[in-house]
């Protein structure tokens, strides 16, 4: 299974005249979703719901309108999985994964912003051909590398590979040099950007090192969080 991110309250009821929205993002069978719960904490019913996104770095837009066909009564909640795609207009946000959302109902229009986990953008065909991987790695200068420590991890290299593969981070090759496992990995984002990585695991050392190697270094910090 792919990793499930924590559900967060995106829009507290006190800021939205009684409407509370909590949610998370997920990727299932090659599709992105915004999984949300709408709760009516007001004393009146709510109808006429609609959702809209501001332009964002990855061109994320809802694939369908919000499917809420019946009024949301006081104290009632509804779970909605909104399918998303990345064919919308692109505008670079800071941070890169920031998403600004507008939700309307019969009472008012409300706004919130949230961060989309980068892993939602890792596509299923992110396994780079081995020959292409080697050539690409050579073409990227070492200045385009960034290193990160993953602390307190107690899995072996194969388990790590399996877990990452479930999240569309693919191990292209594994080598053991002087007792240290070196995993060469690739992933591709929905916008076509490839990221190459080297993951180092030393026996008996719970701290792993991941070294990202890509021409697009602005996404590295987000990537490390996903590792």
């Amino acid at each position: 299974h792919s990793f499930l991110w924590f559900v967060k309250v995106w829009l507290p009821a006190v800021k939205a005249k009684g409407l509370e929205i909590s949610g998370t993002f997920s990727r299932r069978q090659g599709h992105m979703y915004m999984d949300m719960s709408f709760i009516n904490k007001a004393l009146q019913h709510m109808t006429d719901f609609a959702i809209q996104f501001n332009k964002n770095s990855f061109g994320v837009i809802p694939t369908t309108p919000l499917a809420m066909h019946t009024p949301l009564m006081p104290s009632q909640s509804i779970d909605i999985s909104l399918p998303l795609n990345t064919i919308g207009p692109v505008m670079k946000m800071d941070p890169l994964n920031n998403l600004q959302v507008a939700v309307k109902n019969n009472i008012d229009v409300f706004y919130f912003s949230t961060l989309i986990p980068l892993s939602v953008f890792f596509v299923e065909d992110g396994k780079m051909e081995r020959q292409v991987f080697l050539a690409t790695w050579k073409d990227i200068p070492n200045e385009n590398e960034l290193q990160y420590q993953i602390k307190d991890c107690h899995l072996n290299a194969d388990t790590v590979s399996g877990k990452l593969q479930n999240n569309n981070i693919y191990t292209i090759a594994k080598r053991n040099v002087e007792g240290q496992d070196m995993l060469y990995q690739s992933l591709k984002l929905t916008n076509g950007i490839w990221i190459l990585a080297e993951l180092r695991i030393q026996p008996g050392n719970p701290n792993y090192t991941v070294i990202a190697h890509s021409t697009k270094i602005d996404q590295f910090q987000l990537l490390f969080k996903n590792y």
């Binding site: 081995r130 080697l134 790695w137 292209i172 090759a173 080598r175 040099v177 002087e178 070196m182 060469y184």
Partner: peptide, 20 residues
């Protein structure tokens, strides 16, 4: 034969990274 070459290339890469 070509795949052997790739296997070796990855070994060389890993070694060069460990002992630059």
């Amino acid at each position: 034969e070509m795949d052997d070459g790739l296997e070796e290339a990855f070994s060389r890469l890993a070694e060069s990274r460990t002992n630059p």
